[in-house]
Protein backbone atom coordinates (compact mmCIF):
# COMPACT_ATOMS: atom_id res chain seq x y z
CA UNK A 1 0.00 0.00 0.00
CA UNK A 2 1.28 3.42 -0.96
CA UNK A 3 0.07 6.45 0.97
CA UNK A 4 0.79 10.06 0.07
CA UNK A 5 -0.10 12.70 2.63
CA UNK A 6 0.24 16.36 1.74
CA UNK A 7 2.95 15.37 -0.69
CA UNK A 8 4.52 18.45 -2.23
CA UNK A 9 7.46 19.00 -4.53
CA UNK A 10 8.62 22.45 -5.54
CA UNK A 11 11.38 22.99 -8.09
CA UNK A 12 12.50 26.59 -7.89
CA UNK A 13 9.32 28.57 -8.47
CA UNK A 14 7.47 25.71 -10.10
CA UNK A 15 5.24 23.49 -8.00
CA UNK A 16 5.34 20.05 -9.58
CA UNK A 17 3.22 18.31 -6.97
CA UNK A 18 0.95 20.41 -4.77
CA UNK A 19 0.06 18.71 -1.52
CA UNK A 20 -1.54 15.57 -2.87
CA UNK A 21 -3.22 12.89 -0.80
CA UNK A 22 -3.92 9.47 -2.19
CA UNK A 23 -3.79 5.83 -1.29
CA UNK A 24 -2.83 3.04 -3.63
CA UNK A 25 -4.41 -0.12 -2.32
CA UNK A 26 -3.03 -3.62 -2.58
CA UNK A 27 -4.77 -6.20 -4.73
CA UNK A 28 -5.80 -3.99 -7.61
CA UNK A 29 -4.22 -2.11 -10.48
CA UNK A 30 -4.22 1.60 -9.81
CA UNK A 31 -3.69 3.80 -12.83
CA UNK A 32 -2.00 7.16 -12.54
CA UNK A 33 -3.16 9.45 -15.29
CA UNK A 34 -2.17 12.93 -16.26
CA UNK A 35 -0.56 14.89 -19.06
CA UNK A 36 3.14 15.59 -19.29
CA UNK A 37 4.27 17.84 -16.49
CA UNK A 38 1.30 16.96 -14.32
CA UNK A 39 3.57 15.53 -11.65
CA UNK A 40 3.25 11.79 -12.25
CA UNK A 41 6.92 10.97 -12.60
CA UNK A 42 7.86 13.35 -9.80
CA UNK A 43 5.38 11.60 -7.51
CA UNK A 44 6.75 8.20 -8.47
CA UNK A 45 10.33 9.35 -7.91
CA UNK A 46 9.33 10.60 -4.45
CA UNK A 47 7.80 7.20 -3.66
CA UNK A 48 11.14 5.65 -4.62
CA UNK A 49 13.06 8.08 -2.43
CA UNK A 50 14.90 9.52 -5.43
CA UNK A 51 13.38 12.98 -5.04
CA UNK A 52 12.88 14.42 -1.60
CA UNK A 53 9.42 15.87 -0.92
CA UNK A 54 9.48 19.60 -0.21
CA UNK A 55 6.82 18.85 2.38
CA UNK A 56 4.45 16.05 3.23
CA UNK A 57 5.33 12.41 3.00
CA UNK A 58 4.81 9.28 1.02
CA UNK A 59 5.08 5.84 2.51
CA UNK A 60 5.11 2.29 1.24
CA UNK A 61 3.59 -0.22 3.65
CA UNK A 62 3.71 2.40 6.35
CA UNK A 63 7.22 3.78 6.10
CA UNK A 64 9.28 5.83 3.63
CA UNK A 65 11.43 3.73 1.34
CA UNK A 66 14.62 5.02 2.97
CA UNK A 67 13.52 3.29 6.18
CA UNK A 68 12.92 -0.09 4.57
CA UNK A 69 15.35 -2.84 5.47
CA UNK A 70 15.23 -4.43 2.03
CA UNK A 71 13.84 -1.85 -0.43
CA UNK A 72 14.23 -3.93 -3.57
CA UNK A 73 12.25 -6.76 -1.98
CA UNK A 74 9.47 -4.38 -0.96
CA UNK A 75 9.17 -2.08 -3.96
CA UNK A 76 10.14 -2.63 -7.57
CA UNK A 77 9.99 0.27 -9.95
CA UNK A 78 10.34 1.02 -13.60
CA UNK A 79 11.01 4.75 -13.80
CA UNK A 80 11.63 6.18 -17.26
CA UNK A 81 12.74 3.89 -20.04
CA UNK A 82 16.40 3.30 -19.35
CA UNK A 83 17.76 3.62 -15.86
CA UNK A 84 20.65 1.45 -16.95
CA UNK A 85 24.27 2.04 -17.91
CA UNK A 86 24.23 1.75 -21.69
CA UNK A 87 27.56 -0.07 -21.89
CA UNK A 88 26.58 -2.89 -19.57
CA UNK A 89 24.74 -6.03 -20.61
CA UNK A 90 21.20 -6.61 -19.38
CA UNK A 91 22.32 -9.71 -17.48
CA UNK A 92 25.15 -7.88 -15.70
CA UNK A 93 22.86 -4.98 -14.87
CA UNK A 94 20.38 -7.31 -13.21
CA UNK A 95 23.20 -9.23 -11.55
CA UNK A 96 24.57 -6.03 -9.99
CA UNK A 97 21.11 -4.98 -8.82
CA UNK A 98 20.48 -8.44 -7.38
CA UNK A 99 23.80 -8.41 -5.53
CA UNK A 100 22.69 -5.51 -3.34
CA UNK A 101 20.06 -7.74 -1.75
CA UNK A 102 21.74 -11.13 -2.16
CA UNK A 103 19.08 -12.13 -4.67
CA UNK A 104 20.27 -15.40 -6.21
CA UNK A 105 21.37 -15.69 -9.85
CA UNK A 106 18.47 -18.08 -10.36
CA UNK A 107 16.06 -15.18 -9.86
CA UNK A 108 18.01 -13.07 -12.37
CA UNK A 109 17.56 -15.82 -14.97
CA UNK A 110 13.90 -16.09 -14.01
CA UNK A 111 13.09 -12.45 -14.63
CA UNK A 112 15.08 -12.54 -17.88
CA UNK A 113 12.97 -15.48 -19.06
CA UNK A 114 9.80 -13.89 -17.76
CA UNK A 115 10.35 -10.67 -19.70
CA UNK A 116 11.46 -12.37 -22.89
CA UNK A 117 15.00 -11.00 -22.79
CA UNK A 118 16.83 -14.32 -22.97
CA UNK A 119 18.15 -13.72 -26.49
CA UNK A 120 19.56 -10.27 -25.79
CA UNK A 121 20.50 -10.58 -22.12
CA UNK A 122 24.23 -10.67 -22.89
CA UNK A 123 24.11 -7.69 -25.23
CA UNK A 124 24.84 -4.11 -24.29
CA UNK A 125 21.77 -2.21 -23.19
CA UNK A 126 22.77 0.76 -25.37
CA UNK A 127 21.74 -1.20 -28.44
CA UNK A 128 18.30 -2.03 -27.07
CA UNK A 129 15.12 -0.80 -28.68
CA UNK A 130 12.79 1.21 -26.46
CA UNK A 131 10.62 -1.88 -26.07
CA UNK A 132 13.57 -4.02 -24.96
CA UNK A 133 14.59 -1.28 -22.53
CA UNK A 134 11.09 -1.37 -21.06
CA UNK A 135 11.25 -5.13 -20.68
CA UNK A 136 14.58 -4.80 -18.90
CA UNK A 137 13.11 -2.14 -16.63
CA UNK A 138 10.21 -4.43 -15.79
CA UNK A 139 12.64 -7.30 -15.18
CA UNK A 140 14.56 -5.09 -12.75
CA UNK A 141 11.32 -4.06 -11.04
CA UNK A 142 10.34 -7.70 -10.49
CA UNK A 143 13.81 -8.81 -9.41
CA UNK A 144 13.13 -8.67 -5.68
CA UNK A 145 9.66 -10.26 -6.02
CA UNK A 146 8.32 -7.05 -4.46
CA UNK A 147 4.96 -6.55 -2.77
CA UNK A 148 4.63 -3.17 -4.46
CA UNK A 149 5.26 -2.61 -8.16
CA UNK A 150 5.51 0.89 -9.64
CA UNK A 151 5.63 1.23 -13.41
CA UNK A 152 6.01 4.58 -15.13
CA UNK A 153 4.71 4.35 -18.69
CA UNK A 154 5.44 0.63 -18.98
CA UNK A 155 3.85 0.08 -22.41
CA UNK A 156 5.68 3.00 -23.96
CA UNK A 157 7.54 1.64 -26.98
CA UNK A 158 6.27 -1.90 -26.64
CA UNK A 159 4.89 -3.81 -29.60
CA UNK A 160 1.24 -4.99 -29.46
CA UNK A 161 2.29 -8.34 -28.08
CA UNK A 162 4.28 -6.58 -25.38
CA UNK A 163 1.35 -4.32 -24.53
CA UNK A 164 -0.89 -7.32 -23.97
CA UNK A 165 1.85 -8.98 -21.94
CA UNK A 166 2.20 -5.97 -19.63
CA UNK A 167 -1.58 -5.75 -19.31
CA UNK A 168 -1.82 -9.38 -18.24
CA UNK A 169 1.24 -9.11 -16.03
CA UNK A 170 -0.02 -6.18 -13.97
CA UNK A 171 -3.43 -7.79 -13.58
CA UNK A 172 -1.78 -11.00 -12.48
CA UNK A 173 0.43 -9.16 -10.00
CA UNK A 174 -2.61 -7.40 -8.55
CA UNK A 175 -4.50 -10.69 -8.36
CA UNK A 176 -1.69 -12.02 -6.18
CA UNK A 177 -2.50 -9.29 -3.69
CA UNK A 178 0.30 -6.94 -4.67
CA UNK A 179 0.05 -3.19 -4.91
CA UNK A 180 0.35 -2.15 -8.55
CA UNK A 181 0.74 1.52 -9.43
CA UNK A 182 1.04 2.30 -13.08
CA UNK A 183 1.13 5.46 -15.11
CA UNK A 184 0.39 5.70 -18.77
CA UNK A 185 -0.30 8.28 -21.42
CA UNK A 186 -2.24 5.70 -23.36
CA UNK A 187 -5.55 6.37 -21.73
CA UNK A 188 -7.30 3.67 -23.71
CA UNK A 189 -4.70 1.29 -22.31
CA UNK A 190 -5.53 2.53 -18.85
CA UNK A 191 -9.20 1.83 -19.52
CA UNK A 192 -8.55 -1.87 -20.06
CA UNK A 193 -5.78 -2.33 -17.51
CA UNK A 194 -6.55 -0.33 -14.40
CA UNK A 195 -9.20 -1.06 -11.79
CA UNK A 196 -8.85 2.24 -10.06
CA UNK A 197 -7.74 5.57 -11.41
CA UNK A 198 -5.98 8.52 -9.87
CA UNK A 199 -6.02 11.51 -12.18
CA UNK A 200 -3.50 14.25 -11.65
CA UNK A 201 -3.35 17.62 -13.34
CA UNK A 202 -1.02 20.50 -12.61
CA UNK A 203 0.23 18.77 -9.49
CA UNK A 204 -3.20 18.20 -7.97
CA UNK A 205 -5.36 15.13 -7.74
CA UNK A 206 -8.42 15.70 -9.88
CA UNK A 207 -10.10 12.36 -9.46
CA UNK A 208 -9.55 9.26 -7.38
CA UNK A 209 -12.21 6.69 -8.23
CA UNK A 210 -12.88 3.30 -9.79
CA UNK A 211 -12.19 3.48 -13.50
CA UNK A 212 -15.71 2.59 -14.56
CA UNK A 213 -17.09 5.45 -12.56
CA UNK A 214 -14.77 7.89 -14.25
CA UNK A 215 -15.51 6.64 -17.76
CA UNK A 216 -19.26 6.35 -17.54
CA UNK A 217 -19.70 9.52 -15.57
CA UNK A 218 -23.36 10.09 -14.74
CA UNK A 219 -25.49 8.28 -17.28
CA UNK A 220 -24.04 9.97 -20.29
CA UNK A 221 -24.09 6.81 -22.38
CA UNK A 222 -24.64 7.32 -26.06
CA UNK A 223 -25.65 4.98 -28.80
CA UNK A 224 -24.57 4.87 -32.41
CA UNK A 225 -27.34 3.85 -34.76
CA UNK A 226 -27.21 3.05 -38.48
CA UNK A 227 -30.48 2.88 -40.31
CA UNK A 228 -31.64 3.37 -43.87
CA UNK A 229 -34.51 5.58 -42.63
CA UNK A 230 -32.69 8.16 -40.49
CA UNK A 231 -35.37 10.83 -40.77
CA UNK A 232 -38.14 8.45 -39.74
CA UNK A 233 -36.12 7.21 -36.79
CA UNK A 234 -35.34 10.71 -35.62
CA UNK A 235 -39.06 11.48 -35.49
CA UNK A 236 -39.68 8.29 -33.53
CA UNK A 237 -36.98 8.99 -30.96
CA UNK A 238 -37.72 12.65 -30.43
CA UNK A 239 -38.64 13.48 -26.86
CA UNK A 240 -37.50 15.34 -23.78
CA UNK A 241 -34.00 14.62 -22.68
CA UNK A 242 -33.20 12.94 -25.96
CA UNK A 243 -30.80 14.39 -28.46
CA UNK A 244 -30.04 12.93 -31.83
CA UNK A 245 -27.10 13.98 -33.88
CA UNK A 246 -26.77 13.13 -37.57
CA UNK A 247 -23.20 12.18 -38.23
CA UNK A 248 -23.46 10.72 -41.71
CA UNK A 249 -26.38 10.15 -44.03
CA UNK A 250 -27.43 6.90 -42.36
CA UNK A 251 -25.55 7.29 -39.10
CA UNK A 252 -27.08 8.80 -35.98
CA UNK A 253 -25.82 9.28 -32.50
CA UNK A 254 -28.46 9.17 -29.81
CA UNK A 255 -28.09 10.52 -26.33
CA UNK A 256 -30.66 10.04 -23.58
CA UNK A 257 -32.00 6.62 -24.59
CA UNK A 258 -30.46 3.25 -24.10
CA UNK A 259 -30.00 0.81 -27.02
CA UNK A 260 -32.96 -1.27 -25.91
CA UNK A 261 -35.32 1.71 -26.00
CA UNK A 262 -34.05 2.66 -29.44
CA UNK A 263 -34.45 -0.88 -30.78
CA UNK A 264 -37.96 -1.10 -29.34
CA UNK A 265 -39.00 2.16 -30.99
CA UNK A 266 -37.57 1.04 -34.32
CA UNK A 267 -39.17 -2.38 -34.14
CA UNK A 268 -42.57 -0.93 -33.34
CA UNK A 269 -42.45 1.16 -36.51
CA UNK A 270 -40.72 -1.41 -38.67
CA UNK A 271 -37.60 0.71 -39.17
CA UNK A 272 -34.56 -1.34 -40.07
CA UNK A 273 -31.48 -0.82 -37.92
CA UNK A 274 -28.21 -2.29 -39.09
CA UNK A 275 -25.99 -1.03 -36.33
CA UNK A 276 -26.72 -0.38 -32.70
CA UNK A 277 -23.59 0.32 -30.69
CA UNK A 278 -23.51 1.57 -27.11
CA UNK A 279 -20.83 4.22 -26.78
CA UNK A 280 -18.91 5.26 -23.74
CA UNK A 281 -16.95 8.37 -23.32
CA UNK A 282 -13.33 7.54 -23.92
CA UNK A 283 -11.01 8.03 -21.03
CA UNK A 284 -9.49 10.87 -23.03
CA UNK A 285 -12.81 12.67 -23.08
CA UNK A 286 -13.44 11.96 -19.45
CA UNK A 287 -9.98 13.21 -18.70
CA UNK A 288 -10.38 16.37 -20.78
CA UNK A 289 -13.59 17.01 -18.98
CA UNK A 290 -11.97 16.42 -15.61
CA UNK A 291 -9.14 18.78 -16.24
CA UNK A 292 -11.40 21.42 -17.72
CA UNK A 293 -12.84 22.25 -14.38
CA UNK A 294 -11.14 20.80 -11.41
CA UNK A 295 -14.06 21.53 -9.10
CA UNK A 296 -16.87 19.91 -11.02
CA UNK A 297 -15.32 16.55 -11.42
CA UNK A 298 -18.38 14.82 -10.00
CA UNK A 299 -20.67 15.66 -12.89
CA UNK A 300 -19.18 14.50 -16.12
CA UNK A 301 -20.50 15.95 -19.32
CA UNK A 302 -18.93 14.23 -22.23
CA UNK A 303 -18.35 16.15 -25.37
CA UNK A 304 -16.40 15.67 -28.51
CA UNK A 305 -16.14 12.64 -30.72
CA UNK A 306 -17.02 9.45 -28.90
CA UNK A 307 -15.24 6.21 -29.47
CA UNK A 308 -16.43 2.70 -28.96
CA UNK A 309 -16.66 1.42 -25.46
CA UNK A 310 -13.39 0.09 -24.18
CA UNK A 311 -12.04 -3.21 -25.36
CA UNK A 312 -13.19 -5.28 -22.44
Amino acid sequence: MIEARGLTKVYGDKTAVAGVNFTVEAGRVTGFLGPNGAGKSTTMRMIMGLDRPTSGSVTVNGSPLTKHAAPLRDVGALLDAKAVHTSRSAYNHLLAMAATHSIPKKRVHEVIEMTGLADVARKKVGGFSLGMGQRLGIAAALLGDPQTVILDEPVNGLDPEGVVWVRNLVKYLASEGRTVFLSSHLMSEMAVTADHLIVIGRGKIIADAPIQEIITGKGQGRTRVRTDQPDRLMQLLAGTGVSVEVQERELLEVKGLDPRQIARAALDSQVLLYELTPLQASLEEAYMELTKDEVEYHSLITTGAPVEAGGK
Binding site: A69, A70, L72, R73, D74, T100, S102, I103, G144, Q147
Partner: peptide, 8 residues
Protein backbone atom coordinates in the same frame (compact mmCIF):
# COMPACT_ATOMS: atom_id res chain seq x y z
CA UNK B 1 4.36 -6.48 6.26
CA UNK B 2 7.75 -5.72 4.82
CA UNK B 3 9.98 -8.37 3.39
CA UNK B 4 12.23 -10.36 5.59
CA UNK B 5 14.88 -11.22 2.98
CA UNK B 6 18.40 -9.79 3.05
CA UNK B 7 18.67 -6.04 2.51
CA UNK B 8 21.46 -3.86 1.16
Amino acid sequence: GTSTGPGP
